[in-house]
Amino acid sequence: MNLECAAFRRELQHSLENHAERSGAPLRDLLWHRHLHGCLDCRELLSAEEALEALLSSLPNPKLPPGLAQRVLARLSRPAGAQAELDALLELDRPESARPGLAGRVLAHLAEERALARRNPQPVRDLDVLLELARPVEIPVGLAERVKNRTRASTGTRGVLLRWRWMAAAALLALLLGVYAYYPRNPQPSPMVAMQDQPDPALLENLLLLEEWELLQGGDLEVLLSTLPAEDEYLLDLGAEGATEQGGQPKKG
């Protein structure tokens, strides 16, 4: 597409936009004749637009029903006498502070209702038309946004969380308290320290067996006991028993 094509298409667009200004002469007969002769694309485009215009123009004008305006006016009009009476009544009744145009609005409303009753005798239709005619409601500023936010909050994961937030908070608190209660405050003693606090039961059992079998006698038992921690009450008692059995007094190692 060259510059001439672009210019031609602009001209064509302009021509389509300005029906009223069109002279009636087809575009191909104007100054673009030479360009169109040499440019197949533009020629086809012009032909397509002209064909579409012809098709659109082939639609017949809507047939106007005779006496349309008179019928519309008759339906909308009010009996002259009744209107005058109502005007007079409204005029008498109107306080000084009343908004201007009140009488006009009341009359218009009455005319609407009369027209509705005349046009729509069926109750279902009456309702539909009344709904259709319902005066516009003043919508609060930002209502749509608020409704959207609430809907989002009540339907999504966030909504579920928000709805159960107190339950979730209580459960979390209980969990934290549980963890705190069961968490060991003093560290576990190392195996070596445990050995010192309480003698190995297997070792004690062996010692008792040895004693029973009288393999350990007198000084040997004392020597063995002296190797154990002196502060161990249990072992001291054991040593005392051994010494007693042999007829001696318990000794502190």
């Binding site: 909308l76 005319a111 005619l133 005066r135």
Partner: peptide, 10 residues
């Protein structure tokens, strides 16, 4: 059509 003019009236 009548509806249009009713709206105009309103």
């Amino acid at each position: 059509v009548q509806e249009v003019f009713l709206r105009l009236l309103r």
